Amino acid sequence: MFRIAFLTPRIPPNTGNAIRMVAATGAQLHLIGPLGFDLEDAKLRRAGLDYHDLASVTVHRDLAAAWAAFEGARVFAFTASATVRHTDPGYRPGDVLLFGPEPTGLPAEVLADPRVTERVRIPMLAGRRSLNLSNAAAVAAYEAWRQHDFAGA
């Protein structure tokens, strides 16, 4: 299945919502530290409801550890500055859908990293800065899953 990766997430309820989403889709959630909260945070637990035991969540201490874990995988970096739409790539199981922290997004050095296969964006109306992190991750995960006819559903 697909891997959703959050680089240094800051807002616990967004991660909690993503935990529910990966439990519902069979995707894996990778949290890349340092995290802006404790995994026992009440807001994260509340947003994730009772899905924590149904979700695959991996925490990497930093980006170097995540890159090592993603070795050989295609990495799609989501950024509002990309020209390729999130619906354009043909996603494959094992692909990494990488998102930056709220509210800044992925830093330039990550976007320029040679391990990034493609920079992609989710279309929005002009003048809008970004989507909520968990909403953007859900849009991306469901598109990737849709391309595989919602396998397993």
Rank of each mutant, 00 (worst) to 15 (best):
P13Y: 09
F70E: 00
A27Q: 07
T25C: 05
G72Q: 10
L54N: 12
V59Y: 13
L7R: 01
F70S: 07
R92H: 09
F2A: 08
N14F: 06
H86R: 06
D53H: 14
R85F: 12
S81H: 11
S56D: 15
A55W: 03
V116P: 14
P93Q: 07
A55E: 04
P12C: 08
Y91L: 05
Y51G: 12
I122D: 03
R61H: 14
L125I: 02
P107A: 06
D38R: 14
A80C: 09
D38P: 00
H52T: 06
D53G: 13
A47N: 07
R74N: 09
G16S: 05
V116Y: 11
A68R: 14
E118F: 01
A69N: 06
V57Q: 11
V57D: 11
R74W: 01
A47F: 11
A27P: 00
Q28K: 15
P107H: 04
H86E: 07
A77M: 12
T15A: 13
R85W: 08
V96E: 09
G94C: 09
R119W: 06
Y91I: 03
I122N: 01
M21R: 01
W67G: 01
A66E: 06
P123C: 05
L98W: 12
L29R: 09
G16R: 05
G100H: 12
A64Q: 14
V22L: 13
P34I: 09
F2R: 11
R121F: 12
V116K: 12
D38V: 03
P34D: 10
D88P: 00
P101M: 11
G100Q: 08
V120H: 02
A66Q: 02
R10N: 08
L111N: 04
S56Q: 15
D88A: 15
L98Q: 08
P103W: 00
T104R: 12
T117R: 09
R121Q: 13
A5R: 05
R61Y: 00
A82Y: 09
A82K: 09
A24S: 14
P107T: 08
A24C: 15
L106W: 05
F76W: 13
I32A: 01
R115I: 01
A68M: 04
G105W: 08
V57F: 05
T87F: 08
D38G: 11
M1F: 01
A68P: 03
A69R: 04
G36S: 10
G90F: 06
D53A: 14
V57G: 06
A66C: 04
L63Q: 04
F6L: 11
I11H: 14
E71N: 11
A64H: 08
D38W: 01
R115T: 02
M124S: 06
G16A: 02
D50A: 07
S56P: 00
V110M: 07
